[in-house]
Design a protein around this nucleic acid. Structure first.
Length: 268
DNA sequence: CTAATCACCTGAAGGC
DNA sequence: TGCCTTCAGGTGATTA
């Protein structure tokens, strides 16, 4: 469910509510949602800093860190707006010394919370964040030049660039007129640069719109995002393309439902 | 190296 | 109503 913009919203909110808090309790209702890869206990650890890499949320503690991935249906709720005790999909409840809770709700049970000494092992195969300052246009083009993958598979694969998911990948490729099956190395340099700029713009404006809510995504207060109102291709199959009027089709590419304008998007 | 398929899970939607 | 299939914002392992 959540891709980079949705995770970024969650991270920004968690910074406001969790920094400086000290753990006092942990209840795990679905064992596989929680992985302790350290001898240390969470109790009495204090949250010092909260960061993000791709779709991973990293709570840095005074010792070790807690890494959270929401996968498809994971949600973090601060409990400020509602009490989620006894919720059907409550997998983990974290309590703090000030008695405030953090709920991890996850219908499909794919999400994970890891307690580790160091984030290195979990993040070792996660590439540079798609909106990080370290990823320049030149750097992005260099990564594409080295890949023979279909561009959709490349963007979905998190090891080169991280944070892109199915929605934003379809949106970026449509806006650039690039067919998702295009081989990265075959895309003209000008188009590669355009893809970089489009990716920055689409992800950043989705953050300004508080993320995309198709069905499950909510921020930590339970609010929906607004970005779904601005999607031009995702979930638009059967509708006319906003640029040329052709009917948008949907097919399976890179293992995912993929939305394409058959006229606007060119295969390279 | 790239691609395809399954596995992990629950629930909503559509066909018959 | 009910049963069956397919699909869903993700990713990791395994197999061609």
């Amino acid at each position: 469910m959540p891709e980079l913009p949705e995770v970024e919203i969650v991270v920004r909110e968690l910074r406001l509510t969790l920094i400086g808090k000290t753990f006092s309790g942990l209840n795990v209702y679905w064992q596989r949602s929680f992985r302790a890869q350290t001898e240390d206990t969470l109790i009495n650890r204090k949250i010092s800093r909260i960061t993000r890499k791709g779709k991973y949320i990293i709570l840095n503690l005074d010792r070790g860190c807690l890494i959270i991935h929401l996968r498809m249906t994971g949600q973090l709720f601060s409990g400020e707006s509602e009490n989620y005790n006894g919720h059907k999909h409550l997998r983990i409840k974290i309590s703090f010394k000030d008695h405030s809770p953090l709920y991890f709700i996850d219908q499909r049970k794919f999400g994970r919370i890891y307690h580790v000494d160091d984030s290195g092992e979990i993040l070792k195969n996660v590439g540079v964040d798609a909106v990080a300052d370290e990823l320049s246009g030149k750097g992005f083009i260099a990564l594409l030049n080295r890949s023979k993958m279909a561009v959709k598979a490349f963007l979905l694969c998190q090891k080169y660039v991280s944070g892109m998911g199915n929605i934003y990948t379809d949106e970026c490729l449509f806006r650039c007129g690039i067919h998702p099956l295009s081989r990265c190395e075959n895309i003209p340099d000008l188009k590669k640069a355009e893809l970089y700029l489009t990716m920055q713009e689409i992800l950043k404006s989705a953050i300004l719109n508080m993320g995309t809510t198709i069905s499950d995504y909510r921020d930590t207060y339970g609010n929906q995002g607004q970005n779904q109102k601005f999607l031009k291709i995702y979930d638009c199959d059967g509708l006319p393309c906003s640029v040329c009027g052709s009917i948008i089709k949907k097919e399976k590419i890179a293992g995912r439902g993929t939305h394409i304008c058959p006229v606007c998007q060119k295969i390279y």
